[in-house]
Amino acid sequence: MTAREVVELIKKNQGIPWNDRSTRDTFKVGNPDAAVKGIATTMMTSFDMLKRANAAGLNMVITHEDTYWNDRDDTNELTDNPLYKLKTDFVLKNDMVVWRDHDHMHAMTPDYTVVGELRSAGIKGGEHTTMRPGILTIPETTLGELAAQVKRSSGARAIRCVGDPKAKVSKVLVGPGYATPRIGPEVDVVIGGEQQEADGGFDNVEYVLDAVSLGMPKGIIMLGHVISEQAGMEDFGNWLRTFIHDVPIQFVPAEEPYW
């Protein structure tokens, strides 16, 4: 079975029309016609992750995020970059091949990144969620207790929270990765991966700081991009096993990058 054949099976099973114009969901490096010995699913093709996948005998990497440190995996500015050469050579030397599934994963039902994020956050009932689960009502708690639960449950070391830890919260909006949802009057807490802090499409941080100043119960919990979408790649691997039986499939987590 070749990597290209694996991708064809995924396209057939993902249940949505394939968008060939996606700059994200393409082969990134390696030979698509290489024979697949094993598949590693991961949130991000970090160099560390590639080494672990190779050591486990998995030569096809299916990644949710980029390989070359920019969203489009545009390598024009990187051809003379030593780290680019090192990482690329590692993949080629070990007959590995990297393919990304991002846009189509988010368009799929369920969106496994959000399924995994809700599980990581310890919020029940997200097994069949789409990318936008809508407002979820959880038993009333404080922002501080919810943040502590999310930290324990997800293991996120570099979790960042904004808002009054004593604020009473129950209406939660969750989004994966950089798609941290915007907060507003109907929502108490948003949970996401990361977000531009200010001067963006909507600046949650300033809004929550102002809400706190007005005594309104609002909060943000940011897990980090990797942690927010990590668990879903294990679910994605489980899903692959329902139609790929010839090669081993293993979830190989990307490392949380922060100290």
């Binding site: 995020e65 980029d66 440190w69 780290l83 990765g177 950089y178 991009h225």
Partner: peptide
């Protein structure tokens, strides 16, 4: 600030190298 899946990822890969 930087984007985690871009610059942070680059610094993490540098560390792995």
């Amino acid at each position: 600030e930087v984007r985690e899946w871009e610059n942070t990822h680059y610094a993490a890969d540098m560390f792995a190298a």
